[in-house]
Design a protein around this nucleic acid. Structure first.
Ligand SMILES: NC(=O)c1ccc[n+]([C@@H]2O[C@H](COP(=O)([O-])OP(=O)(O)OC[C@H]3O[C@@H](n4cnc5c(N)ncnc54)[C@H](O)[C@@H]3O)[C@@H](O)[C@H]2O)c1
Ligand SMILES: NC(=O)c1ccc[n+]([C@@H]2O[C@H](COP(=O)([O-])OP(=O)(O)OC[C@H]3O[C@@H](n4cnc5c(N)ncnc54)[C@H](O)[C@@H]3O)[C@@H](O)[C@H]2O)c1
Lengths: 229, 229
DNA sequence: GCGGCGCTGTGAAACGCATAACAGCGTTCT
DNA sequence: AGAACGCTGTTATGCGTTTCACAGCGCCGC
């Protein structure tokens, strides 16, 4: 959903990997986990590609980045590939995440991330409402936003999600960045303006729904890939 | 956040407009609304561009698609441009939307869309849990998923949001499509496999948070646009 | 009144990404 | 055993989008 900003890249060895590749690798990894869970041992590029909704060529190309080689006859070994992608994606240690804004969306996010992703844990919530502060929310302490700096430092948090009203989002973001957060996921419907060394991703549900509604009215897609004669 | 699928396009006159342009137009329009609300009458491309986090060139190029001409000296007239974009984006009549899955996320979405966007209204909720069915949720009736076909037809719904567990998402999507839905916004973390004439957009919050966390660890971006000498 | 400025609209170039095409090779079937 | 198949890794091609660059022009100041 996101707009411009010079594409952030990250080096692996001497290669450089685009954001789009990173996103797809994350997706592949999740699918591989599901496959492993269901007992699948080997998988071909075209099978994985269907599950990820990409072309097999793109999948193979993406896999070049993590230096994992499959067998032409067996395909890819599920757990080995999953681990190889993990070695590229995962942090050396568990990453701590903060969530700012314990409203409707914030609480839903809490419920969602509970127990998933052991390497990515929400360890602090922030709000400005006295009624929501200094309590436990899903087993996680909530603080007043004014304590951001202290808490971030003590818990080593460098990632945050913003789920506050649009009017408050920019000021909250500024506080977070000042408190040492390097990377933000923003749900409020305002584009945040931040220093270029801070990574920001916007999830703009309102815009996305409008987009979906817009394309519900489009002329029928040129279905060029319907079945063979 | 979304992956591939041949870009959906839509004709305007004899031109064709890409998804990316549509998204940005939606965004511009929202910003213009805010500007109008705050009393601004004229705006230059570089000002609007900052608010939208795009380059002025891209903004102007996007505006070519809606055939609105600004004045070199005054810039764009806020309300006129807003209306012109609206004429391109908006449906001839109010569009009805369904929401499937009245769990944590579903309820948050309800709260969020309440009263916004008069042209885009949630008019029906669906669930499978007897406790959540046949009641009013934020002034909107909820039905058992088995009634989908009837309700969709009666209310003329062709857009739906999916907020059910991943395991149920594909079957729910199939039901919706069969009931006449043309366009879907899916929050469950599975890629839906649907006929090519159905438009699907995925909002994959888990993947997005992983992405954000990944780039929190990146080398500092090459800040090439820092201030002048 | 005229020159210069700064903005818009747009053609042309550059870039990044996806798609297509192909070489290598282990397996399997004849 | 030999040949043919199918899948992988990789190089090359094409396309869509963004960025650059500039022509046109109304206004403002001199
Ligand atoms: N609810 C949704 O499904 C949804 C969907 C899309 C976008 N959003 C966006 O997410 C944001 C939150 O939505 P919501 O529905 O949870 O709203 P909400 O009103 O339920 O919750 C907002 C929370 O932020 C807190 N808050 C306000 N100002 C703050 C500040 N300065 N510092 C810290 N906390 C502050 C409030 O006390 C409240 O708890 C909004 O910007 C909304 O546009 C929500
Ligand atoms: N909560 C979040 O913030 C969040 C974030 C990202 C993604 N998601 C995804 O959104 C989906 C919903 O999340 P949630 O937190 O609201 O879960 P939830 O368990 O709170 O709600 C799911 C709802 O779907 C209903 N349901 C189950 N099967 C159904 C079916 N076949 N037909 C109709 N309704 C059915 C359940 O009765 C329940 O009300 C999940 O796929 C989740 O992965 C949620």
């Amino acid at each position: 959903m996101t707009i411009k900003r010079p594409r952030t890249r990250r080096k692996l060895g001497r290669r450089t990997v685009s954001e789009l590749v990173v996103v797809r690798l994350i997706l592949y990894r999740r699918i591989l986990r599901d496959l492993a869970f269901s007992g699948t041992r080997y998988v071909f590029s075209h099978q994985l590609a269907i599950l990820a909704d990409v072309t097999p060529e793109q999948l193979r190309r993406d896999l070049m980045n993590v230096r994992y080689e499959g067998s032409p006859t067996r395909g890819y070994e599920v757990v080995a590939l999953e681990e190889r992608i993990g070695a590229f994606l995962d942090p050396p240690t568990t990453q701590s995440v903060a969530l700012v804004g314990v409203g409707n969306l914030g609480r839903a996010l809490f419920a969602y991330f509970l127990g998933r992703r052991p390497l990515l844990q929400i360890v602090a919530a922030f709000d400005i409402d006295p009624a929501k502060v200094d309590r436990m929310i899903n087993g996680c302490p909530s603080y007043h936003i004014s304590e951001a700096r202290t808490v971030m430092r003590d818990k080593g948090i460098n990632v945050a999600m913003i789920a506050v009203p649009a009017a408050a989002a920019q000021s909250v973001a500024d506080i977070l960045v000042e408190a040492g957060v390097r990377s933000l996921l923003n749900f409020a419907d305002v584009r945040l303006r931040l220093p270029p060394d801070v990574y920001v991703e916007h999830i703009d549900i309102g815009v996305t729904l409008e987009k979906v509604a817009f394309f519900a009215r489009r002329p029928v897609a040129a279905a060029k890939d319907v079945g063979p004669a």
